[in-house]
């Protein structure tokens, strides 16, 4: 029995990392859009420069993907 549980642990750890990453990506990207897209939208409201909102959204997505890459990638 202990041999079996020992055998099972290894691939499971890999699986956990992979699943963690896979299920975290949407929520990180959504957060990036809300946070930095929201900041851009506020800037647009205050300054009247419309381009801040899409720039914020793009920055948010890029940051979220970078975060996932650094946390789970490589």
């Amino acid at each position: 029995m202990p041999a079996m549980s020992e055998q099972e642990r290894r691939p499971e750890d890999d699986g956990r990392d992979f699943a963690d990453a896979a299920w975290s990506i949407p929520s990180y990207i959504l957060s990036g859009i809300i946070l930095y897209g929201g900041a851009g939208w506020l800037l647009t409201r205050w300054t009247g420069v419309a381009v801040f909102t899409p720039i914020g959204v793009i920055i948010g997505v890029v940051l979220a993907i970078y975060l996932v890459y650094r946390k789970y990638g490589r």
Binding site: S24, S27, Y28, L30, S31, G32, I34, L35, G60, L63, A64, L67
Partner: peptide, 12 residues
């Protein structure tokens, strides 16, 4: 990144 993590984990 810190606010991103916070928002992602606690809200989204």
């Amino acid at each position: 990144m810190a606010p991103l993590e916070l928002l992602s984990n606690l809200v989204v």
